[in-house]
Design a protein around this nucleic acid. Structure first.
Lengths: 359, 359
DNA sequence: CTGAAAGCGCTTACAG
DNA sequence: CTGAAAGCGCTTACAG
């Protein structure tokens, strides 16, 4: 005999009573409950999770799907740990466990999720790295599994999400650059289908419009998450007709590469090219001149995300429930990397050091 | 009706036969098997995980416990994603799922693990951030749950582990510095009980002995994982009698802070102070002068770790099985940050800029 | 080769 | 307030 029946046997009780005592079901004598709790404690009893899940039809656990794809993982690295902690701070008090489910780099995200969902492994799912059209969202909607996404998507039906306030970033950055005298402001967007690129671009266009600046797709640069992407960005930006005088990044690491390449070209960030960085991170904190960037609490992101999911779980089967959606604020940390445009443009040096990657 | 009984009903078969067909149990007619597989595919059937776990007494899944403790999380950030991918590459083909189990920053590691183990959530466990004495190891041994640790520990009974080859790092770094003419070589060790600090220090002492250099505990510096730790390290190193001429780091980010502080003091890494960095990472790749550092494949770490665990699982209940233990090689990437000691020591400037943190 | 039945360890109406 | 029993959805000896 093992598990709850062993415990019940030792106590001379039925498993039903023991179960009720353990689960705080009302209608158990106080003394009985005390005896049960004491014995459980003493014998180190914990209910078998599988049996409990089967009987209850739920798992009391939440999955958080992340990508191990090296392109985005480099980014995720400095992002998710903080988010997890925020998520846990909400879930743990509710008795919900968090399992992080890393999708192997070689596996298809949809197939990976599909299998997990069908196996009824978790009661709720957290998604990240949402794409413009993200079939995972429909999958979860059809499966009736409560979920919340870290990131928006163009998907038709409304769904629960939390996202960074990319609109605020675009507006604050453009406003600030314009007030410094910039009129030709470049931006970065991610490669591929990641939805935040769209969101950011739209907000950027809106901000330009506000200042009556024409939109020029030529100075919207695709970039990856690495600092080397910033390195190559400098040449791509400057070695073209009518180069921009400023750029707004939505990748943390890019600023590092940009600083390095600018230095190699004997140019100075903030003087010869204005740079507004993205998230405040240890890796950019010590750039000189100090990088203008945005602060966001990853813990708050996790908290918001967990709250939105819990709301979905509570509202399950509730007909007219509107999924919650919220943006986490990003506040500007002013630095000296985004000064006014240079009076005399010394950026087209003819004795440039070669970049390590040939064009 | 749902699940396997629904599937069986549609096919006019018993659940037993369907189960056997699905699980490749021999003794099912070929045509029957084909029909079952086809129907399962068509109806998107996946076995309920809880029911399967309960019937089998196993979960076919592996847990990987990580810490969300901010002190170490900053490190883990740039470490675990690569390791996960390596782990998955071994587990997935074996039909084992990986759940990452993040221990909330406020929760006690032992209690967190204890609960997971008692609930029989996984068939095997991967541990990280092992401490000198790590009670989690005994917990798992007593529970009889197969496990492998990323990192060694002083724990009595032998257990399965994979670790970075800190010995090779210490020896290669000291050899190289000595051959450049250094005799006074400092090292860093982590705060707290993390076991790799001990391992590294022992290897360092051994390497010194080889070169007949006396060990001086005064130049063994405790450090955290952040780049700011490197920043403060510079003053701690230099502003003392008889400062070391070289230092070996076992934290990636520290080099960044050191470079910055040295620059503020008008000193040059590699010329005024020799620095040997730790793991090659994007964040140190662009330091100039180029940082001498070590390369290790995180994927290989994950692969080794998963293999060691799988070996433990297979050997379960096997009496005389010796747990596998292995070190992942770290190979030197020579840079220019560790040149010979300066002829004239210009390190004690009397017009130092203040550090931002007062002493 | 297939089916009927027991069992995995819980929870929860239903009696008493 | 407590117990006996059914049921959650699988797997697997045991018959046939």
């Amino acid at each position: 005999m093992r598990g709850i029946s062993k415990l019940a046997h030792e106590l001379g009780l039925s498993t039903g009573t023991v179960s009720r005592a353990l689960n705080d079901v009302p209608g158990v004598h106080q003394n009985t409950r005390r005896r049960v709790l004491e014995a459980a404690q003493r014998l180190g009893y914990e209910p078998n999770q599988a049996a409990r899940n089967l009987a209850l039809g739920q798992t009391r656990s939440i999955g958080f799907m992340i990508d191990l794809d090296p392109d985005t993982a480099a980014n995720g690295d400095n992002f998710f740990m903080g988010v997890f902690d925020g998520v846990q701070s909400i879930l743990t008090p509710l008795g919900l466990d968090l399992f992080v489910l890393p999708c192997p780099s070689k596996q298809h995200r949809f197939a990976y999720l599909d299998r997990l969902v069908a196996r009824r492994l978790v009661d709720g799912m957290l998604l990240s790295g949402t794409e413009q059209h993200d079939p995972r969202i429909e999958l979860l909607q059809e499966a009736g599994l409560p979920f919340a996404a870290l990131g928006r998507s163009e998907t038709e039906a409304p769904f629960a999400w939390v996202d960074l306030d990319f609109e605020a970033v675009a507006e604050a950055a453009v406003d600030r650059l314009v007030s410094q005298g910039h009129r030709r402001i470049a931006v970065t967007v991610p490669f591929g289908e990641l939805n935040f690129g769209l969101v950011f671009k739209a907000a950027y266009r809106k901000a330009l419009k506000k200042h009556k600046i024409a939109y020029d797709p030529e100075i919207v640069f695709q970039s990856g998450f690495g600092d080397e992407d910033g390195y190559f960005l400098v040449d791509a930006m400057l070695d073209r007709p009518d180069p921009a005088t400023a750029i707004v990044l939505i990748f943390e690491a890019a600023a590092i590469g940009m600083y390095r390449r600018l230095e190699e070209r004997n140019l100075r960030p903030g003087t010869d090219l204005a740079i507004v960085g993205f998230r405040d991170e240890a890796i950019v904190r010590h750039l000189r001149p100090r990088l203008t960037r945005f602060e966001v609490s990853l813990r708050e992101v996790g908290i918001a995300l967990a709250n939105v999911l819990v709301d979905q779980i509570n509202a399950k089967d509730q007909a007219g429930h509107t999924p919650a959606q919220s943006k986490v604020p990003m506040t500007l940390l002013p630095g000296e990397s985004d000064g006014p445009p240079a009076k005399n443009d010394r950026r087209r040096s003819h004795s440039l050091p070669e970049t390590s990657r040939s064009a």
